[in-house]
């Protein structure tokens, strides 16, 4: 079974993240780039499926040159090879543009199964899996907390507000995973060394058959009109317990839709 895992480099959530003032895209120099956390779960699931069913795991990422660090992390965990979509023309692509570019690359690579994290910690649109499936004309199984592959079929437990749905589809398919699905492994030192020798293919817009008029900042359907720094945290609400503290706490939580 050939599995392609889509991974993304995101700014480290532990550091201050910024947008650029000129074109309102992510300021990649302002923070260290790390692999998006949910992508590690996607890589782990791909490796587990490979260990159980055989086949090959290919990592696919789209991003500037330094996104190769993220590829290396996935290869060090145990993926076999990687494809890096890298082209200045891709800069600023929104989710629609990204899904077009990634789908073209996926068609070129070929796959039985595409796995990705259900969202990234930077843009957090959470729509890429669905868009990819539509563009590729294959079933989408999103928010999976458990994946089982049978003969030409795939079954997942799809997390919902009330528990989970059991969803089954034929392969090929696109799956997005949530953090409940597994516990990602640490790369081993040997894995880190081996990763340096694994093949990484770089593809530009033309190489991957991407329609240049569908990608990039200028061709994005969505536009960042304005942005502002998050306001400093406001002072908390103090509730004095006069025998009704429990009720007031519950009211507060309800007003914030926590309960």
């Amino acid at each position: 079974m050939n599995i392609v895992v889509c991974v993304k480099q995101v700014p480290d959530t532990a550091t201050e993240r910024k947008l650029r003032s000129d074109d309102k895209t992510l300021d990649r120099d302002a923070a260290d780039g790390v692999i998006n956390e949910l992508c590690e779960y996607a890589v782990e699931e791909a490796l587990l499926l490979k260990e159980a069913h055989g086949g090959e795991v290919t990592v696919l990422t789209m991003g500037p040159d330094k996104a190769s660090d993220t590829i290396r992390k996935a290869l060090a965990m145990g993926a076999d090879k990687a494809v890096h979509l890298v082209d200045d023309a891709l800069h600023g692509s929104d989710a629609l543009g990204t899904s077009h570019a990634m789908a073209q690359a996926l068609k070129k690579i070929g796959f039985d199964l595409v796995i990705l994290g259900s969202e990234s910690t930077d843009a957090r649109t959470g729509v890429l899996a669905a868009m990819l499936a539509e563009r590729l004309g294959v079933p989408q199984l999103t928010f999976a907390k458990k994946v089982e592959v049978g003969k030409g079929t795939i079954t997942v437990q799809r997390v919902t507000d009330y528990g989970y749905d059991k969803v089954e589809a034929s392969l090929p398919a696109v799956v997005s995973v949530v953090e409940k699905i597994n516990e990602p492994r640490y790369p081993s030192f040997k894995g880190i060394m081996a990763a340096k020798k694994k093949p990484v293919e770089k593809l530009g817009v033309a190489d991957a058959g991407i329609d240049a008029s569908q990608v990039g900042l200028a061709n994005s359907w969505s536009e960042v009109v304005d942005f502002a720094a998050a306001p400093p945290r406001a002072a908390g609400t103090i509730v004095k317990d006069e025998g009704d503290g429990g009720a007031k706490a519950a009211e507060f939580l309800a007003s914030k839709k926590f309960v």
Binding site: Y186, P187, S188, F189, K190, G191
Partner: peptide
């Protein structure tokens, strides 16, 4: 066990026997 799986329990020994 975690350190072992990461390959840290045999660092100064030869690779032919599983070291690093």
């Amino acid at each position: 066990t975690t350190l072992g799986r990461a390959g840290l329990l045999g660092l100064p020994y030869p690779e032919e026997h599983g070291g690093a």
